[in-house]
Amino acid sequence: MENKRASALFTFVALSILAFVFLIPIGLVVMNSFKSRLYISSQPFAFPSSETFAGFGNYINGLTSSGFAAAFGRSVFITVFSVLLIVVCASMTAWYIVRANSAVTKLLYYLFVFSMIVPFQMVMYTMTYVVNKLNFDNLIGIVFVYLGFGSGLSVFMFSGFVKSIPLEIEEAATIDGCSPLQTFFRIVFPVLKPTAITVSILNAMWIWNDYLLPYLVLGTDDKTVPVAIQIAMQGAYGATDYGGFMAMLVLAIIPIVIFYAVSQKYIIKGVIAGAVKG
C-alpha cells in the first residue's frame, strides 16, 4: 500500500513537470508579447523587466498596423458560415444518399469518401484556376469552396449515423403528410445533433487554422488570420515587428483556448469519433 502511494505521488510529480514543459512554448510567446520588440529575438527567455516591458503596446501595433483586426473578422466570418453550410448541406445529402439507396447515390457516396484521401496539393493549382474563372475568389465564394472540400468527411460521418436511425418514424411522418423536407428538418435533423456537433468541431478547427486554401483563393488582400501571420513574418524581411508578431500569435490562440475551455468535452469526443471513423 505504502509502495502504491509512493508511485502515485511520483507519477503525479512527473506529470506535473511534463505539463509545465508542455506549456512552456505558449508561455514563452505570451511573455514575449509584453516585451518591447528589440528585446525579443536577442533575449527570448528573459522575463520582461521595467526596461523591456511594453505593456499592451505590441497588441495595439499588431492589431492596427497590418490589418490583423480585419483578418480576424474575416476568419470568423468564413469559419462560421462554412461550418453552418457544411452541416446543413452535408446532412441533407447524406440522408438522401442513404434513403434513396440507388446506384447513383451509391456512386456519389464513394466519390465523397474517395475525396477524403486526396491530398490538397493534388488539386490546389487547378482548383485555384477554376475558382478564379468562376469569380469565387471572394469571401462568399470561399464558403462554397469549403463546402466542396469539407463535404467528403462530413457526408461520410452523417451517412454512418443516418444508417442507424430506424425508418419507421420517418415512414409515419410521410403517411401523416410530411414532405421529405419537413421529415428531414422536423424529425431527422434533431436526431442527428450529436453528429452535427462532431462535424462542426472538426470543420471549425480545420477552417480556422487553414492557411494554404485561403492564401491561394483570396490572396494577400483578403487575408485570414493564418495568412496574416505568415505574411507578417515573410512579407517584410528584416523589418519584421517582432513585438506585434508575438501579439498576433497570442491573439490567434486566444479564440482556440476559449473555444476549448467552453466545449472541451465535445471537442475530445468529436476528435475521437472523427479519428475512429475517418
Binding site: 465523397f112 475525396s115 486526396v118 488539386v123 487547378t126 484556376y129 469552396v145 466542396g148
Partner: peptide, 10 residues
Amino acid sequence: AFTIAFAVPF
C-alpha cells in the same frame, strides 16, 4: 460545390 472545388480540379 464538390464538383467545382474537387472533382473538376482532380
